[in-house]
Amino acid sequence: MSAIAYSLDAAAPHCGAVPMVEIRDVSRRFGRKPDLLGRASIALGLVKPPAVVRALDRIDLTIAKGEVVGLVGESGCGKSTLGRIVAGILPPSEGQVFWQGQDIATMPAVERRAESLRIQMVFQNPFAAINPRLPVAEVVGEAPRVHGLIEGGRGAEAAYVDEQLVRAGLDPSLKGRYAHQFSGGQRQRIGIARALAVQPEVLVCDEAVAALDVSIQAQILNLFMDLREELGLTYLFISHDLGVVEHLSDRVAIMYLGRIVEEAPAVEIFSRPNHPYARALLAEVPRIEIGKRAFSSLKGELPSPLHPPSGCHFHPRCPYAFARCKIERPELRTVAPGHKSACHLNERH
């Protein structure tokens, strides 16, 4: 089985070239390990053991140059954490991160700083992500000026900032204002303009269009697609909006409680999802349906990254779970060309 799996992998389109980003066996935990005294107190039952959140559990992911990888999964499953690790903002607890084949942990600091400019992140919360004490012109213009991306004097800088704002659908005459004077969607676009202003090669978009009305969202998504065509920009696109992900992505990875459970070309995953969680998730692509509807809530015990279930994390909610699922973690295996899934059902015929 595994030999076949490898040859199928080799047939995958992006093989050969060095991937833009590669994440190898990355885990991330939050919450400190207790010190000696702490451990003793816990052993004696004097204090509760500190809660450790297992946000990411042995993740592998590669993103080729010019590719758009969509990342979806339940709230709290670790998408932002993975995004921050890809962007080099957060170190993994274990595992390695490669940018164009280079392990960022072993890069000299100077080089790392230069490289980190090429990978930018649009943060999930537009309210917290922008320095409140700087006018928008500075928020957007500072980094490109400092890094010498703008040729010419003050006039050139102003023109450059205007261009960035217009591209993101913002009125440049408002650039003297501060973040708090903008609406939610306007702030989100300031974040997008700031990230694009340093001319990155990779953009990690964390719910980057979530606060935008559909027309402005369309404008931004069209901009993303143009940049990709013109400059070969690479994207890790985190979103809960399956319609947007389907529209934009080449490949989609689905996460569940800190693990990637399925990964496949977008067309394939939306038409033939393999993993039971993926099937449940994708069955719910929201459409415009008129008429008051009872919203049903999902059955089953809620999974917690504080106490992840044994074996397959999805087993307490999975309608197909069998004995092995409680004991053994299913590995991410190739089930069709370029299509991987982590479910024991695939080996039970």
Partner: peptide, 23 residues
């Protein structure tokens, strides 16, 4: 224009319909 811009009303990968011009 707003209703026309919803991604699921557009073909995958094609440019999305957007309301022309700027706010």
């Amino acid at each position: 224009g707003l209703v026309q811009s919803v991604p699921s009303r557009n073909r995958k990968g094609a440019r999305l319909a957007q309301i022309p011009g700027m706010t």
